[in-house]
């Protein structure tokens, strides 16, 4: 094995992650390689400083209020979903009522009524097409479960 092969062992040696057999092999290499011994010494000094660095522990209040912060986000998320669904339902209801009023109003010309109906049919076709495409791609997506 070359020095390059021992680079990983050097880290595991510093972190006490070597098996007995690996430890013996690495120490035997160190005994015959001043370059690796020197490099190990430098890494050991670096590790001493790194081990000394402690991050400031926040006050207890932060941990006591931590779940509250997460819960607020969950609650707001649910709030937005309910608000959006209600908004869509109200828009649909308002739309249908407006269309009904237009169609049943004898004062509005037939051409405007036909134009409005055509517009609605076009929108419905577009909506169905987009939804069908989304469902098709989602069902064929091989990676849809990867994140879990």
């Amino acid at each position: 094995m070359t020095c390059q092969d021992y680079k990983d062992s050097m880290m595991a040696y510093l972190d006490n992650e070597l098996s007995d057999e690996q430890l013996r092999a690495f120490e035997a290499h160190l005994a015959s390689c001043p370059k690796c011994t020197e490099e190990l010494e430098e890494f050991r000094k670096l590790k001493q400083i790194t081990d000394d660095v402690e991050l400031v522990e926040p006050e207890n209040r932060l941990w006591q209020q931590y779940w509250g912060g997460v819960y607020n986000r969950i609650e707001r998320g649910i709030g937005w979903v309910v608000f959006s669904v209600a908004g869509i339902l109200l828009l649909i209801y308002g739309g249908f009522t407006a269309i009904e009023n237009v169609i049943t109003d004898p004062g509005i010309s037939a051409l405007l009524k036909v134009g409005l109906l055509a517009l609605l049919v076009g929108l419905a076709i577009l909506f169905v097409s987009v939804v069908r495409e989304r469902i098709f791609f989602w069902s064929k997506d091989r990676y849809k479960d990867v994140r879990r």
Binding site: D8, M11, L46
Partner: peptide, 15 residues
């Protein structure tokens, strides 16, 4: 193996 290798290069870079 990847963990030890990344640690080696991370510490070398820090140094």
């Amino acid at each position: 193996g990847t963990v030890t290798s990344r640690l080696y290069y991370a510490r070398k870079r820090l140094k």
